[in-house]
Amino acid sequence: MSPPPHLAPSSGAAADRLFRLVTAGAAWLVLIVLGGAAVSMAWGGRLAFETFGWRFIASRDWDPVSGKFGALIPIYGTLATSIIALLIAVPVSIGIALFLTDIAPRWLRAPIGMAIELLAAIPSIIYGMWGLFVFAPFMAAHVEPWLTGKLGGLPVIGPLFTGPPIGIGLLTASVVLGIMIIPFITAVARDVFNAVPSSLKEAAVALGSTRWEILSRVTLPYTRSAIIGAIFLGLGRALGETMAVTFVLGNAHDLSPSLLMPSNSIAAAIANEFTEADTELYRSSLIALAFLLFVVTFLVLCAAKLMLMRVGRTHGRSQ
């Protein structure tokens, strides 16, 4: 696109400048909002950081009454749920992308694609309600007893599956989170699978490759950066998700190796406790948690964007 000419008729020059100023100002506003959010979180959390120092990140305390706070349990819950969510979502998303780009008949692709995108449109509070009233009892009645029975006694992974089958806990929250991030990863994967030059795929077919071999030896290597970018994008979304997790994670400031036990995440802790935080230090500790979340999410999303830009996909989907 050619740049606007700087030799516009003089009657429009001032208006041009004004217009450019207004639009540039709006663009600056985007930067200011993000920068403002970062600064305000850092500023709000400074009391906690000053009081606890680096130990804040490693401490398991969470005692509002005696004023001892530590970020370890919320950080653990956030990371554990997000990573397990990715373990579920990534293979599923790649499978769906393969289906939509290669296997499904043409007339089926748009409807199913739209259906998967609807998963992203459902408000997260609906995921939370469904999780609490329908999915958690399902997990408690059918899945968790099976897990405790079959895997609870095994040597290394046994401790991961112990505890009363209440349905509320890390595992349920991770599954719900995984379902939520499927559409984001699928959308990017579908775009980049379609963007693989057909000449490459046709050459592979000419050499007698099967569908699986095209996927594993041509498509995935070609789109590797973008897929990694999509994974980071999904991770970024999972880290910050609040409502779905708050309903089914259990609000327990407790560190246990078991995935079946309730826990807490940064976003859920803030959502549950902020309006009742009764001391400056309590509020500051919660804002400090928000700052940590913001920093980690920012880095992850930056990495995602850089990966996606490398393949020339400067635009993901506007979900």
Partner: peptide, 18 residues
């Protein structure tokens, strides 16, 4: 694009402070 996927609870806290 970062702001697009940023945690909405952080935005809520930012506006709280503001």
């Amino acid at each position: 694009d970062i702001l697009l996927s940023a945690p909405s609870i952080v935005i809520g806290l930012f506006v709280y402070e503001l």
